[in-house]
């Protein structure tokens, strides 16, 4: 059975006028408490080219985050090369090969703030904390992933180059 509202929304190309650097909430990063977090991740076109932290992402840690249903939650919605396909989701695109389709900056923006590209996206904005309603106490004021975790995830995603 298919969704009555049709296929998933694809991220629209940003209009030329919107191709300017925009700032993400600095508070989001400060809340994570990472010492080497960069203050203002700029958005250029459909990418966030500058890493969020000075420490390079670790693809192995990223793999674990992506596969963990309580931490990254990615496999709830996406298919990835590892793990049990039966327990993975198909709400979002298959991530096998995503590193060949998108560069690190594009991947970073999609994980940090997919709704920047498509406000209706069901993909959560992993770095944002503002504008939330009714957040359970344990998660209040905290982004879903910290800046370093997002760097780890991006490092892992760039390794996904084929099926």
């Amino acid at each position: 059975m298919s969704a009555p509202t049709g296929s998933l929304d694809r991220a629209p190309r940003p209009a030329p006028g919107a191709r300017r650097a925009l700032l993400l909430a600095v508070a989001a990063l400060a809340a994570v408490g990472a010492p080497d977090v960069r203050p203002s991740p700029a958005i250029v076109g459909d990418a966030m080219p500058t890493p969020l932290t000075a420490t390079p992402g670790d693809a192995e840690r990223g793999r674990a985050i992506v596969g963990d249903r309580q931490v990254g939650l990615c496999v709830l919605c996406h298919r990835v090369p590892e793990g049990e396909p039966r327990l993975q989701g198909d709400i979002g695109p298959d991530l096998r090969g995503v590193g060949a389709r998108l560069d690190a900056g594009q991947l970073r923006l999609r994980v940090a703030d997919a709704r920047r590209l498509n406000p209706r996206s069901v993909m959560p904005a992993y770095l944002a904390v503002d504008g939330r309603t009714n957040v359970a106490a344990a998660y209040r004021g905290r982004p879903i992933l910290g800046a370093q975790q997002i760097e780890d995830v991006v490092a892992y995603l760039t390794t996904l180059r084929g099926r």
């Binding site: 298919s2 939650l73 709400i91 904005a125 939330r132 009714n134």
Partner: peptide, 28 residues
């Protein structure tokens, strides 16, 4: 229709927009 929680999802996001899709192993 109100997006809520840390994941900032609404009931409609899953049940009006994506029924029939799989959330992890489960059909929505």
């Amino acid at each position: 229709h109100q997006r809520q929680g840390q994941l900032d999802l609404s009931c409609a996001d899953c049940h009006d927009r994506h029924p029939g899709r799989r959330l992890a192993g489960n059909v929505i």
